[in-house]
Structures are given as structure tokens and as C-alpha cells.
């Protein structure tokens, strides 16, 4: 028997309501994200250590190569005191990280995790998931303002610039892909790729590349980690946070990265195709997403940080026009995916 149907009947809830709760909370949502974050951050530190000829995390669970270091850190954060600076706007300061994390995880209601594994299926799910993610920068700006600190303020300014710059290219590449498939529904996008046996990354590599680069920018990854900018502005808008709130704001960028890489998997890597079994398909989607995330965090080891003005001019004067080329390419390739 379908476990979802069984659980729905046991709890006396309609199936759609259970779906809508399970997607953001269990898979592909927060519970899975916690495991992903623990693994990806550990892998990021280990990879950087290997490149720099260090050992990396080691002492917590020495036999596992220090894999439980992040869990130990997380537990420590949970028991640390949350310090609100004297000049801070107390409620904005405390509520905005919680709200930002909640809003970002709502995107999981729209992005499927496998065949038939989704919160809501809508003909606009692609753009709706993006719309939800686009609310997060405002909350980061509020964090930076509420902390009442010069570094957080500069960080908030950078976040706004980065959000507007990155999202223009991200949205353009996403719409180019949607135009290519003739759909904004993740499920039908994956079905189109499965039917034609041509994954989006082969059909429109320009859009895929731009999506990936813009995703690195909006999730604050190296070489575009301007918002955090550790050597310049301490921790950017997150400077004043302590305890569990610090853990939340640190996880926020990884959460966004996870959502965007999940979207990349569906848009350009054919999602769960060729599997149609919910379990196998979900595992396949998860494996692709994890591999993409590992690649994204690996870049930290091999790149330096770009300057703010370099990033802005690169995105607006080179990548954004390239995104318009991606549209043209999509128009040419559209017949491959058009229904016969």
C-alpha cells in the first residue's frame, strides 16, 4: 500500500494536505536538507583542506573523518545564548532570520523531489518557486538593518545589489528554459525531456550555464561571496547573530543552493528520467542535486573572490545579454520538445 495513502487515512487528513505538509518538512524539504547541509558543509571543508594540504575537520568522530563535526557545532549553537545587541531593533532582529528560513523552505512545496513526490502541482510551479525564493533578500536586508552595525549595513547593501543583479540573469535563463519546453510545470518539463531523450543541458547549454552561474551569485558562493565577504565585512548582514539564529542564517544560503540545484536538476538534467518509480526516481534526483551542490561548494577551493563592481559589470554587460541569446536558442530548439 502507498505509505502516503496509509498515513493520510491513519491521520484522517486529505491526501493533498498531507502532501503539502510532507514536501516542505520531510522530502525534499527540511529533514532532507538537514542531512544534506551536514554532509555538504563537511565535504566543503574537507575538499578545501585537501586542496590546501591540510586535514580539515577530524577530531569529532575521527573514524568517520570528522563527519560529525557539523552536528557537534549544531548542538553547540542550539545551547548558546542569543545575544541581541543594545542598538538593535529587537523583534526585526530575531524574527527576520526565522521568517527568511521559513519562506525559503516554502519553495519545496512547488519543486518536486521525484515522480509524484511534490507538495502542489501547478502549471506555474517553476516561476512560483522562484517567486518564493525572491522574497528572501528583503528579509536579509532587514537583518542587516536591524543589527545596527556598519558591517551588517554594508552587507545588506551588497545583498540588494547581488539579488537584483543575479535574479535578472537567473530569471532570464529560467524563462528561456521554460520557453524551450513550452511549460512552466516541473513535472511536464521533466516528462518532455524523458519523452524526447534530450536533457535540457544538451539542448540549451547557454541557459544551463547562466542558471548555474547566477545561482552561485544569489546563494553567495565563491567566486561571488560578496554578501558574506569574510575578510572584508566580517560576516556581512549576519555579523551580529549568535546561537541558533547564527546557525539559521548560515544554513540559509545552503538552503537556497539546495532549492536552486534541485530546480537545475529538473530543468536541465531531466529530473527523475528514466525512472518512474517514486523511490528510485527520488533517489536519482537527490543524487544529481547532491553532486551539483558538491561541485558548487568545491569552487570555494579553487577560486578567489571577485570585486563587487566586476561582478555587477560582468552580469549586466556580458551574462544578461547572453541570456537573451539563450532565448533565441530556445526558440530554435523548441520543436524538439513540442508535442507532435
Amino acid at each position: 500500500m502507498d505509505p502516503l495513502a496509509w498515513l493520510a487515512s491513519a491521520l484522517g487528513l486529505p491526501r493533498w494536505a498531507l502532501r503539502a505538509v510532507a514536501a516542505p518538512l520531510v522530502y525534499p524539504g527540511l529533514l532532507t536538507f538537514m542531512a544534506v547541509a551536514l554532509f555538504v558543509i563537511w565535504a566543503e571543508r574537507k575538499m578545501a583542506a585537501r586542496v590546501q594540504m591540510r586535514v580539515g575537520p577530524l577530531y569529532v568522530s575521527r573514524r568517520l573523518g570528522g563527519a560529525l563535526q557539523l552536528l557537534a557545532d549544531g548542538i553547540r549553537f542550539a545551547f548558546q545564548e542569543i545575544i541581541v545587541p543594545v542598538g538593535a531593533e529587537k523583534w526585526s532582529f530575531i524574527l527576520s532570520p526565522i521568517l527568511a528560513f521559513t519562506v525559503a523552505s516554502l519553495a519545496f512545496t512547488m519543486v518536486p523531489g521525484g515522480p509524484g513526490v511534490y507538495g502542489f502541482r501547478s502549471s506555474l510551479s517553476l516561476i512560483a518557486a522562484y517567486a518564493i525564493l525572491s522574497l528572501v533578500p528583503i528579509l536579509v536586508i532587514i537583518m542587516g538593518w536591524a543589527s545596527n552595525n556598519k558591517f551588517t549595513y554594508i552587507g545588506a547593501g551588497r545583498e540588494a545589489l547581488v539579488a537584483v543583479t543575479g535574479e535578472a540573469t537567473l530569471l532570464a535563463s529560467m524563462l528561456a528554459a521554460a520557453m524551450m519546453y513550452g511549460s512552466m510545470d516541473f513535472v511536464s518539463i521533466v516528462e518532455e525531456q524523458a519523452r524526447s531523450h534530450v536533457p535540457g543541458i544538451v539542448a540549451n547549454p547557454v541557459a544551463a550555464l547562466l542558471f548555474f552561474i547566477a545561482a552561485l551569485l544569489v546563494t553567495d558562493r565563491v567566486p561571488f561571496d560578496l554578501v558574506m565577504g569574510e575578510q572584508e565585512i566580517v560576516q556581512g548582514p549576519y555579523t551580529e547573530y549568535t546561537g541558533i539564529l547564527y546557525a539559521l542564517v548560515m544554513a540559509l544560503d545552503y538552503l537556497k543552493l539546495y532549492v536552486l540545484m534541485l530546480m537545475f536538476t529538473h530543468l536541465f538534467l531531466a529530473g527523475w528520467a528514466p525512472f518512474s518509480d517514486p523511490l528510485l526516481g527520488s533517489v536519482w534526483v537527490f543524487a544529481k542535486t547532491l553532486a551539483l551542490m558538491l561541485f558548487a561548494v568545491f569552487l570555494r577551493s579553487v577560486y578567489g573572490r571577485m570585486r563587487l563592481d566586476q561582478v555587477a559589470s560582468m552580469f549586466w554587460s556580458r551574462l544578461f545579454p547572453l541570456a537573451l541569446t539563450a532565448f533565441a536558442l530556445s526558440a530554435l530548439i523548441h520543436p524538439v520538445y513540442a508535442q507532435p
Partner: peptide, 23 residues
């Protein structure tokens, strides 16, 4: 469709820009 683009354009971008300019 208009609702989703309203969120993307007016909140995601315009309000962010407005926020930073005013602040």
C-alpha cells in the same frame, strides 16, 4: 500568472531596490 509575476517583479525586485535606495 500575473499574480506570480507580481511577486517576482514588484516584491522580489522593486521593493528590494527601493529598500536599499531609501536605506
Amino acid at each position: 500568472y500575473i499574480a506570480v509575476f507580481h511577486v517576482v517583479v514588484y516584491i522580489g525586485t522593486s521593493v528590494t531596490l527601493l529598500a536599499i535606495v531609501v536605506m
